[in-house]
């Protein structure tokens, strides 16, 4: 892939998905494009990139999906789930005792391990049995990942990364060498393909947002925009959970870290519009 092709691909990805490519990743990019090239019948990566110029939507989506990193595991970054279980959920159960309604969004759910981990914790609290309504939405830009997540079928290798054995036998059914998530957990989650650059207008007001290990692939401006729009849909006392290595404070003025709980953020007081920097309230990154 020559420099010009790489620059063009990087530009398409940044505009359409927020993903950043650096030239250090040229070989990785080429190897990820090979299956797309074969699927669409191109002779080489160069021909594929030429076709991208014509805005062939299915091809653009396939290229974006090929470039996304989908590595995940159940209860990934255990500390985050402990914070959700021990801090976030008990507080919300008090604060929402009247409405008995919890609304949670996993913003980049890959093959579903994160929302199903959340669902398992919710089931530990027996919220549904106690009459609570749970809205658990899980999205990802990669439609193939969403299909996998909806199927809820995981390999033996996948269920051994982060999932305690008692949870495996209690929440999954064995199908040959694979394991399928139980119907009750699967029904708890609503999956949808969604690009974080698009409007958040369809989302309800949310009590908890998991947005982990995705914004690190975005440029600064896109990260700002996503955090800002998360602020628009997150309840004033809602919780934002990001990856332990991802910093929110310093990046945007709307959040404060929770002391002693890495990756857990709460909204600060509403920020008057005049204090917001221009360009921080974008509904969509301009092309």
């Amino acid at each position: 892939m020559n420099q010009q092709d790489f620059a063009y691909l990087a530009d398409v990805l940044r505009r359409r998905s927020g993903l950043m490519l650096t030239e250090k990743k040229t070989h990785l990019v080429e190897s990820r494009l090979v299956p797309v090239m074969r699927r669409f019948g191109f002779r080489d990566v160069g021909s594929l990139l030429k076709e991208l110029h014509y805005g062939h939507e299915a091809l653009v989506q396939a290229v974006i999906e090929a470039m996304t990193t989908n590595d995940s595991s159940f209860f990934r970054d255990r500390k985050t789930f402990e914070e959700f279980r021990d801090i976030v959920l008990p507080t919300l159960m008090v604060d929402r005792a009247e409405s008995k309604h919890l609304r949670i969004w996993c913003a980049a759910c890959a093959a579903g391990q994160e929302p199903y981990s959340v669902a398992m914790i919710l089931e530990d609290f027996k919220l549904l049995a106690k009459g609570w309504t749970i809205t658990l939405i899980a999205t990802d830009i990669n439609s193939q990942m969403i299909t996998r997540a909806q199927e809820g079928l995981y390999s033996q290798f996948e269920v051994q990364r982060g999932l305690p054995i008692r949870r495996l036998v209690g929440n999954f059914m064995q199908e040959g060498t694979n394991w399928r998530i139980s119907d009750s957990l699967r029904r708890m989650v609503t999956f949808r393909t969604f690009n974080l650059l698009d409007s958040f207008g369809w989302l309800p007001d949310l009590d908890v947002i998991f947005c982990r290990n995705v914004l690190m692939y975005f440029d600064h401006k896109t990260r700002l925009s996503v955090f800002d729009r998360i602020g628009d849909v997150l309840a004033q006392d809602g919780a934002l959970l990001v990856g332990p290595a991802e910093l929110v404070s310093g990046l945007t003025i709307g959040y404060a870290p929770s002391e002693g709980a890495p990756g857990l953020y709460y909204k600060t007081e509403p920020v008057p519009l005049h204090r917001r920097a221009a360009g921080q309230r974008l509904d969509r990154i301009p092309a």
Binding site: S73, R76, D77, R78, F157, Q160, R161, G162, P164, I165
Partner: peptide, 16 residues
């Protein structure tokens, strides 16, 4: 897998 399972029972620090 060994690392993950040992982490489950508090034997090693979870790496993930």
């Amino acid at each position: 897998i060994i690392e993950a399972k040992f982490a489950e029972v508090g034997l090693v620090m979870a790496q993930r």
